[in-house]
Design a binder for these strands. Structure first.
Lengths: 230, 230
DNA sequence: CGTGATCTTGAGGGAATTCAATGTCGGTGG
DNA sequence: CCACCGACATTGAATTCCCTCAAGATCACG
């Protein structure tokens, strides 16, 4: 098991803005639209905390630009990353009253913030919105299950699986931009930073990938990677 | 990573019964009640498949008695268990159109089977039912996230975590009944059967637990276990 | 009792971690 | 411009943990 890692988290409390901007929306509006209409757009800097684990889950968030990670610090000090969220992704939608993970921006990010109570109220009146909320949670469930399946594989399979996951998000062809650090990747995959690094180097030596720099990966040989993915 | 394990799965197709027994229910009924009224009670024998991975998710299930496991066979032949469901648990509720895992009864089980379309129709008309469906999916999400956190820990922590999980389910005090085999536990925890067995033996040597027989565990020293749980 | 399935225990090896050192990149100031 | 610095990433060597393979023990059942 990887050793504990410490991370610095700059805290800010930018949520007052929402109260001002939040506004009601005509019932019957589809959620995707409602999100845009009801929310306040906010900026978060690199490593800025958006919310903390255990805080009241009064808001739901949508990434406009940038990247967000959710994470949790375990009892022994180790950090597990729950997910990375990119443009268009919704995060922070909880069924319970508290956030089960904390969230911070990996890079400067624009985030749309919506009152949870507003969505819930809308859902209570409009079954389409209710269905949309349910679908969001269901997609999250599917994502976590995929993540779980990654964690029972070998280091190489985890890293390759991660690369495919990242590649699938943006239509960048075979070039994948990694907005997160090696430590973030390691904490997402349940590996150490050294193992991630070694594995990437190994894949490069086998001509499966190319590493122009540490934050960019080119998938040179997808079939070979597919095979390593098991 | 554990080596592939093969498992025999007796197949039966007992779903015709549902069509006969399914009946509509007055709108506005709470889901918990609706489940009982709309469903057909069915019996599944040990190792009987309830549904298979990739099959249309036309039904939702609730355990009346017995235990159910959901599992998935990975590309390399290894099996990952997604969850164990006990009395009162709902399983098989999908947001998509297909089951993402297969499900089988670990022991002889009574299962309540409900048409998904009936629930969905109810949810479309009654926001309380919709909320209930959403809550079910949300609880499942929380459960999978807990499971995921287990998989990044050491073998000992996984096994201890599993024992606590099982102990929390039934109010049996410190005595925990394990309805599943060592292989099932191993496939749930991403370990080998040998490691599970060794870890349990180790815990017994440290007087943290007692093993009257292979399917029963007595938690002798919860504080010590709590510590090992990290 | 046998017999097979399940579980436990042992010995050895391999994969990932740990500890440690070196390398790279971007920024800042001399 | 480039030397320096800190953060991040890579590489190396040794260790640890868990897996693999194998043998024995226990249990349920005929």
């Amino acid at each position: 098991m990887p050793a504990p890692t410490t991370s610095t988290a700059l805290h800010s409390d930018p949520h007052q803005a929402v109260a001002r901007s939040a506004q009601s929306v005509p019932a019957g509006h589809p959620l995707t639209g409602a999100f845009e209409m009801m929310g306040a757009r906010m900026e978060f800097g690199r490593n800025c905390e958006i919310y903390g684990e255990g805080e009241p889950a009064d808001f739901v968030y949508k990434v406009i630009s940038g990247t967000v990670r959710t994470s949790k610090v375990l009892a022994d000090g180790r950090r597990q990353i729950g997910a990375f969220y990119h443009s268009g992704d919704v995060f922070g939608l909880e069924v319970g009253e508290e956030h089960s993970f904390s969230a911070d921006a990996i890079a400067a990010s624009q985030i749309l913030v919506v009152r949870r109570s507003a969505l819930m109220g809308l859902a209570a009146r409009d079954s389409h919105v209710a269905h949309e909320l349910w679908t969001l949670t269901g997609r999250e469930l599917a994502r976590v299950q995929e993540h779980l399946l990654l964690l029972v594989k070998t280091a190489q399979e985890r890293v390759v699986g991660f690369l495919f996951e990242m590649a699938a998000r943006r239509p960048g062809g075979d070039t994948v931009e990694l907005p997160m650090s090696r430590q973030d990747i390691a904490d997402y995959l349940g590996l150490t930073i050294e193992t991630v690094s070694r594995t990437l180097s190994g894949l490069e030596n086998e001509n499966a990938i190319e590493l122009p720099n540490s934050r960019r990966v080119v998938l040179r040989n997808r079939p070979a990677l597919r095979q390593l993915n098991a």
